[in-house]
Design a protein around this nucleic acid. Structure first.
Lengths: 177, 177
DNA sequence: CTATAATTTCAGTGTTGACAGAAATTACTG
DNA sequence: CAGTAATTTCTGTCAACACTGAAATTATAG
């Protein structure tokens, strides 16, 4: 079983996902494996993944481990077969909620920490008022985004789906537009 | 003028920004220049930027061009000086709105295009119903995110700020939680 | 307990993207 | 229309990260 045996639509999807993966901060193979598992109607073992994607067995192993630490992929077992089989969680919204939290951890949290400590030191510093102002502004921005994320994170996926799909009418009623 | 002459708070900020830049999909120098300009009370010329950050003049030139194409940095002129001076836009929310649109263009739009064409081809394909289902689900997800982005993008920054800062009470009233 | 299948770790290799410095171009000034 | 300052483009080098294949480890079956 190799890539060529897959339906062209699936091929394109997997290749594209790998390509985009690099832009999303993951590596190509990790993203491709994820795409393959997402599209596969049944769990796959590492050997099969390696064969279909044409990447080394060891690379698959490392990538699967990464996907598992995120909680996006889990191991399942097939009776009478000692190999590990893998599948992704199926709810897309749940999946992206996990991805979002991973990205927040890597892309927001470190900056938030820095800004908080900067703001503390700011008072006892001799910096220009205008410069202090700018640091405070960006700190406030990050705090706001963090706050919005926290609220989002606490919601069940159903609520998130509804929020994301909120219509203009509601936004107007809220007075935000 | 070099990095050492800057207040430690500013040094840390610039270094950190550069480091995070790589995680945000930009390169370190681009992000550092942006941080420096954001913190600087007055516009800077390329030579000054090069000296402070300790990177080559050519690298500064390329990076500034990139920041300009995004519309985050603009050229200003100082009477009696033929050099170009650079400054960032000052409104943080406006700034991140621009950054968000850039990221959407690179990280969402290509996938959205792929999924739309996939969904079209899906009907005349012989794929398993379960597989079709999965493709449709992820396509719907990306369409929803795109829709939410469009609405956000049309709002003035003030409205975005209010939306991001929405309290739990409002969310509950909306029935999303 | 031994043999073998499955998985993981590791060291070397390849690939990609950032960067410096040089060369070229553009834009001023007298 | 020189001559020089400022900026940009280009090419080779370097560093960071992904990947392979081999070796080591772990798990299972007889």
């Amino acid at each position: 079983m190799t890539m060529k045996d897959l339906h062209p639509i699936l091929q394109r999807f997997i290749l594209h996902w790998g390509e985009m993966g690099t832009r999303w901060g993951l590596n190509r193979t990790v993203a491709q494996i994820h795409a393959l598992l997402y599209l596969s109607p049944k769990p796959l073992n590492a050997e099969e993944i390696s064969a279909v994607l044409g990447v080394s067995r060891s690379n698959v192993s490392t990538s699967l481990k990464e996907l598992q630490t995120w909680g996006i992929v889990r191991v399942v077992h097939i009776p009478g077969d000692r190999r590990d089989y893998y599948e992704t969680i199926s709810d897309v919204w749940e999946m992206f909620k996990i991805i979002l939290s991973e990205r927040k951890r890597r892309e927001l949290d470190p900056t938030l920490a820095l800004l908080r400590s900067s703001v503390e030191e700011l008072e006892k510093s001799s910096l220009d008022e205008s410069v202090k102002e700018r640091v405070l502004e960006i700190a406030d921005f990050f705090e706001s985004i963090d706050g919005a994320y926290q609220k989002l994170h606490k919601m069940p996926t159903g609520a998130i789906r509804r929020l994301v799909k909120l219509g203009d009418r509601v936004l107007r009623a809220l007075g935000v537009i």
